[in-house]
Amino acid sequence: MKGVLLVNLGSPDSPTAKDVKPYLDEFLMDERVIDVPKILRNILVRGIILQTRPKKSAKAYAKIWWDEGSPLIVLSERFTEKLRQHTKMPVALGMRYGTMTIKNALQELRQKGVDEVLLVPLYPHYAMSSYETVVVKVLEEQQKAFPEMNVTTMPAFYKNPDYIKALSESIKDGLKDFEYDHILFSYHGIPERHIRKSDPTRFHCKIDGSCCKINSVAHNTCYRHQCYDTTELVKAYLGLPEDKVSSSFQSRLAGDPWLKPYTDYEFERLAKEGKKRLAVITPAFVSDCLETLEEIAMEGKEQFEEAGGEHYKHISCLNDSDAWVQVMANWVNQWEESQVLPV
């Protein structure tokens, strides 16, 4: 019997330092998130970061927490429930980090008789710290506790025409009644070394502005290329002016070079260049979360206005929109019927 496993990032159980600390520990100790030797990662995370970060992060979570709970969890659950109404297959939801585990989601599917699983990492783009770690963790749990299950993984869907249409129409709706001077596509940031580590050719990805434009098998796992591809495809779909659209990367850690340009620098640059009305979209996520709701919608607005900007619009992620649910339903039903996966 076939079934679907959706996996998103995860969340602390509450916006308190007590619950944020174990969540951050699991997240930051992931070798695909902070990819240094374990002994160094242990010193960095448990000896330094977790001494102060949980309290600070808890305050940030408290700013965006809903009555129903974590926005990311609530939105993911709503999306899952809507998807169940569009397919005959069992659909389970798990999180890469936190107490809503992948193991429990697989157990839920097994109890319903599922032995053929379609794994859907809820990330449009391939990155070792998001998409890849989900796939690795699911296969690890499957091999350990569910050897009778076969897992098929949905590829990153960053350029799929149905996804691009849903994303573009969502942006179009978000821009209604907002006259913009500029639209910034702000993607989750990753260290530059992650790009090179994910390059199967070991030579193509130079992060020099030209390699992303030269066709290569490396693009299948190149987060930077895929992000810029999404921007270009949305820009073409909506007919956006070339000079009014750009891409940037947010949420970096100090110490290493991360993908540029940095979003916070772009807020300042655009404002100082006279862009008074800025719209921001965060397509690295399909569900709004701490990074989109606090860092971009709240802090980003403050940064832009402090630099001289006047009007700021954060456009929500796809979340549980009916159009996005229908796109996913079409994909999973095609897989159920004929093993066809989106490209």
Rank of each mutant, 00 (worst) to 15 (best):
P200Q: 05
S170V: 03
T221L: 00
R202F: 12
V217L: 10
A218L: 08
E192I: 13
F157V: 14
I183S: 04
G174L: 07
P191C: 04
D177L: 11
D162F: 10
V217G: 06
F146C: 07
D199K: 08
K206G: 11
K172L: 12
E192F: 08
Y223A: 07
S210N: 14
E179Y: 08
K144Y: 07
N220D: 15
G189R: 06
R202I: 10
M149S: 00
K206Q: 14
T221V: 06
H225G: 07
E179L: 07
P200E: 04
S198V: 02
A145N: 15
E192V: 14
D199G: 07
F178M: 09
V151P: 04
D208W: 03
K206P: 05
H194M: 09
K206A: 12
P191E: 04
G174D: 03
I164S: 04
Q143S: 14
H219W: 04
K165F: 05
I207G: 07
P200A: 01
D173H: 14
S168F: 06
Y187V: 05
D173T: 14
F178P: 01
R224K: 15
V151T: 09
R202D: 12
R196L: 11
I164A: 00
C211N: 10
S168V: 00
T152F: 04
E148Q: 14
S170D: 09
A218R: 05
M149C: 02
K197A: 10
D173W: 01
G209W: 00
S198H: 05
Y187D: 06
V217T: 14
E169D: 10
F157W: 11
D181F: 09
H219C: 04
E179C: 11
F146M: 04
V217W: 02
M149E: 09
N160L: 06
N215K: 15
S168E: 05
S210P: 02
T152N: 13
S170E: 05
R224N: 10
Y180W: 12
T153I: 11
Y163V: 13
L184Y: 00
N215D: 15
F157N: 09
P161Q: 12
A145C: 12
I195W: 01
G209N: 00
P155A: 00
D181V: 07
V151I: 13
A156P: 11
S216E: 02
D162H: 04
K159R: 15
D177G: 03
C212Q: 07
I214D: 10
I214Y: 08
D208A: 01
T153C: 08
F146W: 01
P147S: 12
V217R: 14
V151W: 05
F203L: 12
I164W: 03
L175A: 04
H194D: 13
P155G: 11
V151F: 03
L175D: 01
Y163S: 01
K165Y: 00
L184T: 08
H225F: 12
P191A: 03
D177Y: 09
Q143P: 07
L184M: 11
N160E: 14
I171G: 07
G209R: 08
C222R: 03
N150W: 02
E169C: 11
Y180A: 11
K176Q: 15
N215E: 14
K197V: 10
S168H: 01
D181C: 09
I190D: 09
M154F: 02
S186V: 00
S198L: 05
C222H: 03
E179K: 13
S170F: 02
D208V: 08
D181W: 10
G174A: 02
